[in-house]
Computed example of a mutant assay.
Amino acid sequence: MSLPVHATPPDRFLTPEALADLADLPARSRWVRAGTLPLHLLDYGGDAPPLLILPGITSPAVTMNFVARRLTDLVRPLVLDVRGRGLSGDGEGYSLTEYATDVEAVVDGLALDRPLLLGHSMGARIAAATAVRGTVELSGTVLVDPPTSGPGRGAYPTTREAFLGQLAEARRGTDAEEVGRSWPRWPLRERALRARWLASCGEAAIIGTHEGFETEDFFDLWPDVPGPAALLYGADSPVVPAEAAAEAARALPAATFREIPDAGHMVFWDNPEASLDLLRQTLRGLLD
């Protein structure tokens, strides 16, 4: 049995087991509308400065729980189900402009006072686009392993077909063991969450975002990201190779740069302790 995500195509669904994951979180659901589009967030509460977390291409908000929980003594984490994923609705498009407009609606709708933005992968690109637009006031931006692919820069290292193959596995029913074949280094709990929640991602959202990875150039945004800004990347990441990290440092030398050892693109999952320690150091620097 599966429960459809509200107002979404039938190719997006969540099982009761997946929805039960939400009951175990130390966070409450919040809702905002971007125009007519419903957006869902997990709000970890508290009186600390707000940190809006923007996950990656196939990462609903719940999959970032282990990151958010490690930060609650520093910030008030809020994790967004980006449009087309989790409990949020489907948008008509998936460009950086549309994604950034959603973030602005969240900041305004929840009256977040100068939040920090933290984005991983796709979310890092969205954070950069939001910061550059300047429509909402931010306290700082942390980009974690943003896709540096784009026109004339080569293809994104994971193909669209690979993403859609993983989605097909999730739709027919997958488990932590099967997820582990693609992501053997991940902790068991995180593999199990991905197995239960990947089917909440829409095919159109994945295709549209992947197309953006190759048609929208990150380096058109990065030099104009206002400070304070930080870029964290995996030492072994094919998404931010050494030459791209060097280009980023030249393009915005005022930013903070941190290389996460023994980690690929999925830095928090590949090396949780080192990546979260470096993230905490980075956030402390921005807050100070």
Results as ranks from 00 to 15, higher is better:
His6Phe: 08
His6Gln: 14
Pro9Ser: 10
Asp11Cys: 01
Thr15Met: 03
Pro16Cys: 00
Ala18Ser: 11
Ala18Val: 07
Ala18Glu: 13
Ala20Asn: 14
Leu22Gln: 12
Asp24Asn: 15
Leu25Cys: 15
Arg28Thr: 12
Trp31Cys: 10
Arg33Cys: 14
Gly35Leu: 06
Gly35Pro: 05
Thr36Trp: 05
Leu37Ile: 04
Leu37Trp: 11
Leu42Thr: 03
Asp43Leu: 04
Gly45Leu: 11
Ala48Cys: 12
Pro49Gly: 00
Leu51Ala: 01
Leu52Pro: 15
Ile53Ala: 06
Ile53His: 05
Leu54His: 07
Leu54Arg: 04
Pro55His: 01
Ser59Tyr: 15
Pro60Asn: 09
Val62Gly: 13
Met64Asn: 08
Met64Gly: 02
Val67Leu: 14
Ala68Tyr: 08
Arg69Pro: 12
Arg70Trp: 03
Thr72Pro: 13
Thr72Asn: 01
Leu74Ala: 01
Val75Phe: 09
Pro77Phe: 02
Leu78Gln: 03
Val79Ala: 01
Leu80Thr: 08
Gly84Leu: 06
Gly86Phe: 04
Ser88Gly: 13
Gly93Trp: 09
Ser95Asn: 08
Thr97Lys: 14
Glu98Ser: 13
Ala100Gly: 10
Val107Gln: 07
Asp108Trp: 00
Asp108Glu: 14
Ala111Lys: 07
Asp113Glu: 14
Leu116Glu: 06
Leu117Glu: 06
Met122Ser: 10
Gly123Ser: 09
Gly123Asn: 08
Ala124Leu: 06
Ala127Met: 02
Thr130Ile: 02
Ala131Gly: 07
Arg133Trp: 11
Arg133Asn: 05
Gly134Tyr: 03
Val136Gln: 08
Val136Asn: 12
Val136Asp: 12
Gly140Glu: 05
Val142Gln: 09
Leu143Lys: 00
Val144Ala: 13
Pro147Ile: 03
Thr148Tyr: 03
Ser149Phe: 06
Gly152Ala: 11
Arg153Gln: 12
Arg153Leu: 15
Arg153Met: 07
Gly154Val: 05
Gly154Leu: 09
Ala155Asp: 15
Tyr156Ser: 05
Thr159His: 07
Arg160Asn: 10
Glu161His: 00
Phe163His: 08
Gly165Val: 13
Gly165Tyr: 15
Gln166Tyr: 14
Ala168Thr: 14
Ala168Met: 11
Ala170Val: 04
Arg171His: 15
Arg171Thr: 10
Arg172Ser: 08
Gly173Ser: 10
Gly173Cys: 09
Thr174His: 12
Thr174Ala: 02
Asp175Cys: 02
Ala176Met: 07
Glu178Met: 04
Val179Pro: 03
Val179Gly: 01
Gly180Ser: 08
Arg181Leu: 14
Ser182Leu: 12
Trp183Ala: 08
Ala192Thr: 09
Ser200Lys: 01
Gly202His: 02
Ala204Asn: 08
Ile207Trp: 05
His210Ala: 00
Gly212Thr: 04
Glu216His: 07
Asp217Asn: 12
Trp222Glu: 02
Asp224Tyr: 11
Pro228Met: 03
Ala230Cys: 05
Leu231Met: 11
Leu231Gln: 02
Tyr233Arg: 01
Ser237His: 11
Val240His: 09
Val240Trp: 05
Ala242Lys: 13
Glu243Lys: 03
Ala244Asn: 05
Ala246Gly: 03
Ala249Cys: 02
Thr256Ser: 11
Glu259Met: 12
Ile260Met: 04
Ala263Ile: 10
Ala263Gly: 08
Gly264Ser: 08
His265Asp: 01
Asp270Glu: 07
Pro272Gly: 07
Pro272Ile: 05
Glu273His: 15
Ala274Gly: 10
Leu276Tyr: 01
Leu276Lys: 07
Arg280Ala: 12
Gln281Gly: 14
Leu283Ile: 09
